[in-house]
Structures are given as structure tokens and as C-alpha cells.
Simulated scan of single mutants.
Amino acid sequence: MTRQAAGRGVPSLRAWSGVEWALAAALLVLAAAAWVVTSVVAMPDMRLGILAGPSPMGGDMAAMSVGLGLFVLTWVVMMAAMMLPAITPFTVGVRTLLPAGTRTRRVLVGLTLGYLAVWSALGLLAYAVVRGFDTVAESGSTTAVKTGAVVLLVAGGYQFTPLKRWCLVRCRSPLALVMRHGPQASRGPVGAFAVGMRHGGYCVGCCWGLMAVLLAAGVMSLVWMAVIAAAITIEKVLPRPELAGRLWGAGLLGAGAVLFLAPGLVAM
């Protein structure tokens, strides 16, 4: 970690206590378990999206017949797999900044569960979007790829907006969260859960474009999950997040423009 990281509330790795290393290890073990579970329960037809080529989700609707409940359950596990590594330094930073008497396990669990609850609720919207993509895929592979290209263009453009930067700053800074909401988080697990939801809201505002790309590329593809999770983690953890965000944005804009003008590159 750098001085910049320490300044926003994330302590240097060398300054982490044994308890903080244990907390980080626990979060990463949970993330690893979630990756394993996702690989087991992911529906095969949902590993491909509208950007993958000809009618990846069309034709056989059996994959979607599992319904909303199973999709959201799988989505919750996916969000744990993708987001827990990204929020590990943040959670350690929050623990460091909270008053000594309030750094309880229940408070930290409440913060984490509140954060994941927001991403889990987003699964309802994700299900609707995926069903819409499924309908688009039935219209033909060229239409599907062009629709996916529009998703890339929108997501890439969002990376350059002031709202993206505003959410990213708040999503990265434990210091800002504790200064604004520390007393509420310190009251107990209920208050911590509410504060965790606030943090999750900032993160959704920061990362929804990248998650839309995942829906178009293959919502349950382990490869694309890893790519998007890596991009999100880099923005949240490493220095110069705005530069990284602009690089992702430029890449998405370029890929979206190419696929929109030449869908035949993947459509058949």
C-alpha cells in the first residue's frame, strides 16, 4: 500500500495487526469458497452472453426456466466471489478507524452483509436484463452482437463521467465512510448493516457499467467474472484508480465501436 492508500484510511500492509490479517484471510477464504460454489451451480447456458456469437441463450429456454429464485441465489454467491476480495482492504481500514470498543465481529459482519445485500438486490434487475438479452438473441446473432456492442459503448462512456469519479472516491475511502457514518456503524450490527448498504450503493454507482458488460459477455462465465472482478479490484485498491477507469473505458469504447460496425467478427 502507498501513502495515498493510508491517507484515505487503508493502513499499510506492514501496519496490519494479527487480527486484521485474520479478518482479511477470513474474507478471502469466503471469496474462494464462493468461486468454487459458483463453478458448481452456474447454469451452462448462462456462461455465454449476447456477445459470444450466434444465439448463445436462444433456442432452448430450459436454462431460464429455473426462475428468478435460483438465479438470484446464484447471483448472491457470485457477488460474494467477485466483491469480497475488492472490499478486504476497505474493511480492514474501517476496523482500524472505528473506536476501539466498537471493533466487534458483529459490526464488521454487519458492514459486509449490508454491502453484499445491495449487490444481491441488484440480482433482480440483472435477471430482467438477462431475460431481455435472451429475447434479443432470438432475433438473430447480428442483432444480439450489436446490442452487446451498445452495452460496451454505454459502459465505456460511463467510465469518463463525473458521477463515476464521485462514486469511486467514496467507494474507496474507509476514512470518508467512518467520518460520515462511524457513529451509526458503532451502534451495533443493525447500524453497521445500514452503513454497509450505503457503501454498497456507492459501489453500485461506481461499477454498474462493468457489471452490465458481464451480463452481456456471460453472466456466469468464470473467465468473464474473473476479468470484471480484477478490473473492479484494481479500481478499488491500487493507486491512480481514475487512470485505470479511463483505460477500461477506452477499451470498452473501442471494442463496442468495432463490434457495432462489424458484428460479423463474432456473429454467424
Rank of each mutant, 00 (worst) to 15 (best):
Q4Y: 11
V10H: 01
P11D: 02
E20D: 14
E20S: 05
L28E: 11
A31H: 06
A34P: 01
W35E: 04
T38P: 00
S39G: 14
A42Y: 02
P44E: 07
G49R: 08
I50V: 15
A52N: 11
P56W: 06
P56V: 04
G59K: 05
A63L: 02
G67Y: 10
F71P: 00
V77D: 05
M78E: 06
M79S: 11
A81N: 02
M83G: 03
L84M: 04
I87N: 03
T88S: 15
L98E: 03
P99R: 11
V107A: 03
L125N: 05
F133C: 03
E138S: 14
S139N: 12
T147I: 01
G148W: 09
G148V: 08
G156M: 07
G156A: 10
L163G: 01
L163A: 15
R165L: 10
W166H: 12
P174N: 04
L175T: 01
A176P: 00
A176K: 09
V178W: 11
G182S: 07
P183D: 11
S186L: 08
G191R: 08
R198S: 11
Y202P: 00
G205S: 12
W208E: 10
G209S: 05
A212K: 07
A216I: 08
V219G: 01
S221D: 11
S221Q: 04
V227W: 07
V227I: 14
A229H: 09
T233G: 05
V237D: 08
W248N: 09
W248K: 03
G251Q: 10
G256C: 02
A257Y: 07
V258E: 02
L259C: 01
P263T: 07
L265D: 04
A267F: 08
